[in-house]
Design a protein around this nucleic acid. Sequence first.
DNA 1: ATCAGGTTTGACCGAATGGAAAAAATCTTG
DNA 2: CAAGATTTTTTCCATTCGGTCAAACCTGAT
Lengths: 217, 217
Amino acid sequence: MATSDNKDARATKTRRRTRIQREKETLILDAALDVFSAQGFAGATVDELAAAAGMSKPNLLYYFAHKEDVYSALLDRQVDDWTVPLQEIREDGEPLEELRGYIRRKLELSRMRPRESRLYAMEIIQGAPRLKSALDGQIYALVREKSAVIKGWMDSGRIASVDATHLIFAIWATTQHYADFAVQVRAITGTDTESTFATALKTLEVLFLDGLRIRDG
Amino acid sequence: MATSDNKDARATKTRRRTRIQREKETLILDAALDVFSAQGFAGATVDELAAAAGMSKPNLLYYFAHKEDVYSALLDRQVDDWTVPLQEIREDGEPLEELRGYIRRKLELSRMRPRESRLYAMEIIQGAPRLKSALDGQIYALVREKSAVIKGWMDSGRIASVDATHLIFAIWATTQHYADFAVQVRAITGTDTESTFATALKTLEVLFLDGLRIRDG
DNA sequence: ATCAGGTTTGACCGAATGGAAAAAATCTTG
DNA sequence: CAAGATTTTTTCCATTCGGTCAAACCTGAT
């Protein structure tokens, strides 16, 4: 059935996008990421979003009919990107190297995309009203799948046995911490971002792979 | 100088509190913790706060002249409570046991006070505008002090050497994760809260103390 | 150059919000 | 119980917010 000329907002039309549409939508989403990740959905006003994108409020609403549409567009994009590092874990790899790589990729994502991480974090903290379905769907499935892979490694004695799902949680928590709690990390370490992430990576590798207990021999 | 009869809001008077004042303020703060931790500062309305506390809006504003005052009162209380587990680390204890105990206490706090954790998390994520001074002050000082203690243990070879401050970050991140991201944890594990925390504790102990690498002997 | 479709703006609107004022009700204490 | 202090409610207000609308303005294909 034709969905091209119903009463949707103009920007949601299925019709092919204009150059200006593509440019402006990108511009809006990037600006909105700044604003939403710093103030949350409720804390941001459409006027602020528009100002951050360098346009008027009605102009922004021409591209996204509702404030919520901008927010949802950001969240949707985020869920996909966020799960990529986990997807890249390979069952036939060397377990410790796979996990080390996963930690590295996830930390790198925190370094490169802290705003996205904060947006996601705030959404989850507030009960994930807008991505409950993603949680129960694709994220759930992916974690289950990769947990099974990791559990396989444990059961065959290639790495120590812990709950594989909680291991994933621990990697999420520690890596995302550097994006989500960046202000706190900076206040306490006093160091610049680059060296913080370098130290973080070393610390996390040692902790997850070797632990704090001194090994004999 | 006398600060008792200036033009402060009534509730901020230095004069001794009545029974009703104490009761209602407690009631309000507990209700506000529900609301703020679920919706953030901007997402909560004074009407919602009042409704949650079972009173009218003007009545709530009689006790806290501004919405922000309620929020600040909660945050202040939180900073103190939140640092207690770290304070309890004892330099003259057995290092691994001290750290194990710290993990346990911090996780227990996430289990018992998830709302407070979420409130704190959202505040930090948003740049900690209201507790920048605590970060730069008491929190900074405490972490520095305890990091030095842990570093002492490392330097004397009693535990493995990592960056002590980042070790503390890792413990914060992993334990608070179970409060802040509870919705996600529940969606993925599907288990009830009790068994989740039990599994979490076991997993974190193994990870932090022994790591994933298989020990020879 | 034209003109149809796409884009931008200024003016405006109703609802919601944080808060003020003051009267009414209740409590406390001599 | 009386009187003062405290607490609660009713009413109201100025502002802000998300969103609409119609008119004006571009842009690109012919």
